Simulated assay, not measured.
Amino acid sequence: MPATRVFGRRTFLGSAVMTLAVIGVHTPEFAFEKDLDNVRRAMQHMNIGFPIALDNHYVLWRAFDNHHWPALYLLDAGGRVRYRHFGEGEYERSEKAMQRLLGASGATGDDRGIVSVMATGFELAADWPSLKSPEIYLGHDRSEGFASPGGASLAKRRAYKVPARLDLNRWALDGEWTMESQPTILGSAPGRIVCQFHARDVHLVMGPLHRDGRVRFRVSVDGQPPGPARGVDVDDRGAGTVIEQRLYQLVRQPGLIVDRTFEIEFLDGGVEAFAFTFG
């Protein structure tokens, strides 16, 4: 279902999270996000202690006419939406809205302080002034910007190559891949995905093809290990391992943001890649 990527990325399994009072709603985009075990694992990883409702059939998504991942909704005692915010960030503004709503409901208390939120990792808001790359889907159904010679073939394992030059927000495959409707699958190594981007952060939604699989990879930026520009899921040399189906943060640049070439090389086969998101 089409949606606006407010910050070009996801924070919870690549899904919508709409907070209704103290209840979260998980609306999946990709098939693996409907899996209850995946949702439970993500909740544990993010230390989420409040209930999460699974909206696998988009019932609540449509009821709220929601078009954003993630989205925050505050409701009053009568069930009316009194505040909404789309995307990460604006935590102080959202907390003040909660305090106003509690005050209007008759809640008492003198504490009107604001909790300081030190957003890190996926929760850090995007660098809007520098962000020039939209979300890039890697599956056949929405594979805009694909630049490998010969184009994409649906559900057919074939060899792909990276062209000599990539324009901004164009991407290509190298190796033998099968491009399914949602994911693109590498059956056997080696295989690469190369993308030209302009953003502080690079994330990739991916997972092992088999539940207990482990897929080693390494990333580079402009042909070099990321070093201090590494994301939380790689080391300074760009090495990492795909161990579960989720969003992986691969690059977070500390310096000047310009057009750069990102490359991820998989050293093992058996990986599904769904989408790049940027921040």
Rank of each mutant, 00 (worst) to 15 (best):
V22I: 07
A53W: 06
W171N: 02
Q224S: 14
E123A: 14
S181E: 10
V258C: 12
G109H: 06
G279V: 13
Q249L: 05
R158T: 03
R41S: 04
R252N: 07
A63I: 07
G207P: 01
G145I: 14
M206D: 00
N47Y: 10
M1K: 15
F122C: 01
D111G: 04
D167L: 09
V221Q: 06
R10Q: 05
V242W: 01
S181M: 13
K132F: 05
F7P: 01
I243G: 05
F30V: 08
R9A: 06
A172C: 08
N169W: 12
H85Y: 15
E263H: 01
R40F: 03
R142I: 05
P228F: 08
L36K: 11
T241D: 03
L36I: 07
Y137H: 12
R216A: 09
R157P: 02
R142W: 10
F7H: 11
T19A: 13
Q249K: 15
V194R: 14
G103P: 04
S94K: 02
A31F: 09
T4I: 11
M98G: 11
G113C: 02
K161E: 07
I193Q: 02
E95D: 12
G24S: 13
W128R: 04
H85N: 08
F262I: 15
S94F: 00
A104R: 15
L209V: 13
T178L: 15
V117E: 07
G191Y: 06
V234Y: 01
Y73F: 15
G113L: 00
N66Y: 06
Y248Q: 04
R218F: 09
L247P: 00
A119E: 07
L209N: 04
F274M: 10
R218D: 08
S188N: 07
N66D: 13
D127A: 04
P51E: 08
L267T: 04
T108D: 08
R62K: 13
A31Y: 05
L247M: 08
E144T: 10
F122I: 15
R80N: 09
L186C: 07
G269F: 14
D212W: 06
N66T: 05
D65H: 15
V221T: 08
D35M: 07
G151W: 01
L204I: 11
A31S: 11
F7D: 14
A164W: 01
G227L: 15
S143T: 04
E135Y: 01
Y160T: 05
A53K: 05
A31H: 06
T27C: 12
R100P: 00
K132V: 01
Y83F: 14
H45G: 02
P190S: 12
D233W: 02
V59A: 07
R142C: 03
N56F: 04
G139M: 09
K96A: 12
D212Q: 09
F266L: 07
P208W: 03
E135A: 11
G106N: 07
F266V: 08
A16K: 11
A3V: 03
P190A: 08
R10E: 09
R211Q: 08
G175H: 12
L36G: 02
V221F: 00
A125T: 10
L60N: 05
D174K: 15
R82Y: 05
S94I: 00
I114P: 00
S133W: 14
L204N: 02
P51G: 04
A71Y: 03
Y73H: 11
R82Q: 13
L209Q: 10
K161W: 00
D37T: 09
R237M: 10
D37N: 13
A31T: 11
R40S: 12
V59F: 05
G145A: 09
H57C: 03
